[in-house]
Design a protein around this nucleic acid. Sequence first.
DNA 1: TATTGTTATACTCTATAACTATA
DNA 2: TATAGTTATAGAGTATAACAATA
Lengths: 164, 164
Amino acid sequence: MKVVHQLAPGGRSASDALDRLFAVTVRLGEVMGGGLEERGLTRARAEVLWWLGSAGPITQRQLADILCVTPRNITGLVDALEASGLVTREPHPTDRRATHLTLTKRGKAMAQELRDDQAQMADDLFGDLSERAVAEVVRALDHVLTRLPADLSAHVQSDAHADV
Amino acid sequence: MKVVHQLAPGGRSASDALDRLFAVTVRLGEVMGGGLEERGLTRARAEVLWWLGSAGPITQRQLADILCVTPRNITGLVDALEASGLVTREPHPTDRRATHLTLTKRGKAMAQELRDDQAQMADDLFGDLSERAVAEVVRALDHVLTRLPADLSAHVQSDAHADV
DNA sequence: TATTGTTATACTCTATAACTATA
DNA sequence: TATAGTTATAGAGTATAACAATA
């Protein structure tokens, strides 16, 4: 038996809204995690596929910067994806220290599936709302984003985060 | 260099909304995780404190049911919280197999801090919206919740609180 | 000297299985 | 026989530190 966090219907307070946000976060994570598991993926590995699909062949170092994790972490994720036949390590064309991560044919197909899944999810969750209602949701969430403390670990290219 | 996920301003499509939802989820998780770390807590341990604070002394088995994890998982979390002086294992009044988890004085204070933090967070994120606007956010998130597949492993709350 | 990716090590969360003490 | 919690073992994600090859 499991306990369901009860949400009082029709709340109007800030706490009600945050409760909903948590509930959505948890359920969305569960649903997406389940979908990934069916494909033999974890969230961390799926994120690597996602970025390789959109950012093209990149080095492990670049991927570490994108995902805000250590290079050592990337080594482990790429090891797993390589063993699954989704990613290959190719020599970097100009820098012999670096590795060029590339998607295999299966990896590309998997990355596309992830995109299709996300589009389907978006349609399932918001598809039956009017364009105006969706715009309101977007505005509300953007409002929340502006009120969350700035992401100090995020940087633009060439930023000076070395001395932080 | 670090890549920041860019969100196109003013989106109106379902994908725009889901993108925001992900962004909020990620940022909110980072902010809360950082706050917990300052208190020497992890998310899993904080959740134990949270439930002990609201559900009173319960057994490890009940806590495992509440959190949807294995009893073995609870053992580890309680070990850590006990070592931190936040939780104690007390003998169950009637069942000598079971353990009654209770918050220490510091544990109670910490649980209260978590509640205060959450209330503060709710106010930070939604406090400057009108009651009507908050109600709209709540409605939109409830809409999303109804469209997420049902949690098949979920059960009513009275189950877990029976015969503590 | 600095950077890329690795090995070595460790911690946290999570799971299954086997076991003990008790019901 | 069933249940509560433990030990044993394992895997995934994450981190720091030391190192080799290369820039």
